[in-house]
Structure formats: structure tokens, C-alpha cells
């Protein structure tokens, strides 16, 4: 375990190197939060308080917190993986006496943790204190933290699978952008799930994507009872198991098929 922890540590240090990167990411998030705020205020302007059972602050909270989660769990793992396969740098990871899937996971984890500390938490505080989104200081915070980590694990394994398949399409960026757009939309991160048509909602609820955004946001806002919250976490855990297994299968497949030529 210490070996993987050492990688997480270095990845954390490495992410800290890019000061300009950080400043722009923080600025980008700031712009995103303000955009969401004014957009949803405009949506609610003529509504008389609630739309689809959600008040303005709730709708804003869904979108803003989801955006925050996105910047934390989106670590570009698929991009790094696909690039290292197509450029052949993957051999460097294979020369280490470590599991490739786990190594990729902990590298991603290092980035996730950096984002959590330096953008995630400050922005959550901003959303809560500056915009007045009501978040209780109770067990919901623990549920949220666990759930956020679970979201990261689901997201990582989807990325891993996309990364392994993407390099053979020679359009990693395109596939990545499509994947992000689809996940953000279907998970209710862009438009809260309450706004989706009645007929569509049950479908979205059985897809894995809501577990990545809808679940942590819900748990943070503390709108569910404790048994309900635990159930939601268990469903997330189920999706982790499913995608982790799929990730392992892809991992095996890629090792057997690897062709790195030259240099």
C-alpha cells in the first residue's frame, strides 16, 4: 500500500507545480458559478418561487455543486492513458512492479485530491456561504464525502475503459468530450433531474450516471433520510463494483494486445 501511497504523494506534488493552471481553474470555476447563478435566476424570474418542485436555491445548488464535483473527479485519466499507449510511454509503467490499473487509479487519485483541497472545498464553501445554499452541518457531510470519493471511483473506471478503447479510434479528445457531455447531461449535472420529462426520469435513475452527480449533491443537501442515504451509497458501491470489474477486463485485454514499436 505504501508503494501506491508514494505515487499519490508525487502526483499531488506534481499537480502543485502548475500555479498558472490553478489560477485559471479557480477563475474558470468562479465564472461557472456566477453563470449558473444568473442563468437560474433568470429561469426562475417569472416562476413565482418553485419549478418542478425545486426552489431557486435548490436548483442553483444542484448545478453549482455538480460543476464543482466535475472539476474534482474529471482527472483526464482517459487522455493520459490513451496518449501513453499511442506514444508508447506505457512501457515505463509496465516496467514497474505494480498493477497497471491500480497505478493509473492512484495517479488519478493524486490529481483528485489536489483538486479537492485547492478548488473543491473552497468552492463548496463559496457556494454555501456567499450564495447562501443551505447545507446542514451534520452526518450529511460525512455521507457527501464518502459519496464524492465513490463518484471519483466510478468516473475513473469509466475513464479507464474509454482510455483503453479510445487509442484505437485515433480520436481520444473527441471521444472524451462526447463522454463528458453525455455523462454531465444524463446525470443531472447540467439540468437537475427534476426538470427532465416524467417518462425519462426512471430511465435516468437506473443509469450509472446519476450516481456520479445526483447522489453526492443530494447527500450534501441532506434531503434524504439516513436509510435512504445509505441505500444511495450502496447503489454507488454497486456501480463501482460493476465498472471496476469491467476496468479489470479491459486491463487484461490491453496487456495482451499491446504493440509498442520503435524506441
Amino acid at each position: 500500500m505504501r508503494r501506491y501511497a508514494a505515487i499519490v504523494r508525487n502526483m499531488f506534488l506534481e499537480s502543485l507545480n502548475f500555479r498558472a493552471d490553478f489560477i485559471f481553474m479557480v477563475l474558470g470555476n468562479l465564472v461557472g458559478v456566477f453563470l449558473a447563478y444568473y442563468l437560474w435566476r433568470a429561469v426562475y424570474a417569472g416562476s413565482g418561487g418553485t419549478l418542478h418542485g425545486l426552489g431557486f436555491l435548490q436548483a442553483f445548488a444542484y448545478v453549482a455543486v455538480s460543476g464543482c464535483i466535475f472539476t474534482m473527479i474529471e482527472t483526464w485519466a482517459e487522455w493520459d492513458l490513451a496518449m501513453s499507449i499511442s506514444r508508447g510511454d506505457i512501457v515505463l509503467r509496465l516496467h514497474l512492479p505494480l498493477d497497471l490499473h491500480l497505478t493509473t487509479l492512484v495517479e488519478s487519485l493524486g490529481i483528485f485530491l489536489t483538486r479537492l483541497v485547492f478548488t473543491g472545498v473552497p468552492f463548496l464553501l463559496l457556494i454555501i456561504f456567499a450564495f447562501g445554499v443551505p447545507v446542514a452541518a451534520g452526518i450529511n457531510l460525512i455521507f457527501f464525502t464518502v459519496s464524492l470519493f465513490f463518484s471519483f471511483l466510478i468516473s475513473f473506471n469509466i475513464d479507464f475503459i474509454v482510455g483503453v478503447t479510445a487509442f484505437s479510434f485515433e480520436s481520444v479528445l473527441g471521444l472524451k468530450l462526447i463522454k463528458d457531455a453525455v455523462i454531465l447531461f444524463l446525470s443531472g449535472a447540467v439540468i437537475p433531474l427534476a426538470f427532465f420529462p416524467e417518462a425519462l426520469r426512471p430511465v435516468l435513475m437506473v443509469l450509472p450516471f446519476q450516481a456520479m452527480y445526483y447522489t453526492p449533491v443530494n447527500l450534501l443537501l441532506g434531503e434524504k433520510s439516513i436509510p435512504e442515504s445509505v441505500l444511495m451509497l450502496l447503489i454507488q458501491a454497486g456501480w463501482i463494483a460493476a465498472f471496476m470489474t469491467a476496468g479489470r477486463l479491459f486491463h487484461r485485454k490491453i496487456l495482451g494486445k499491446l504493440t509498442v514499436s520503435g524506441g
Partner: peptide, 21 residues
């Protein structure tokens, strides 16, 4: 043609992580 060292970190950090690995 390729370096196994951590590109943005001081050399000693790469040595330390390899020591752990």
C-alpha cells in the same frame, strides 16, 4: 528515448518514490 523520472519534480522525489515502489 523516454525518461522514467517525474517530469516536474526534483530528481530526488523520483528516487524516493522508486525506493518505495
Amino acid at each position: 528515448q523516454r525518461s522514467q523520472l517525474w517530469w516536474n519534480l526534483p530528481v530526488i522525489e523520483s528516487f524516493k518514490v522508486l525506493k518505495e515502489i
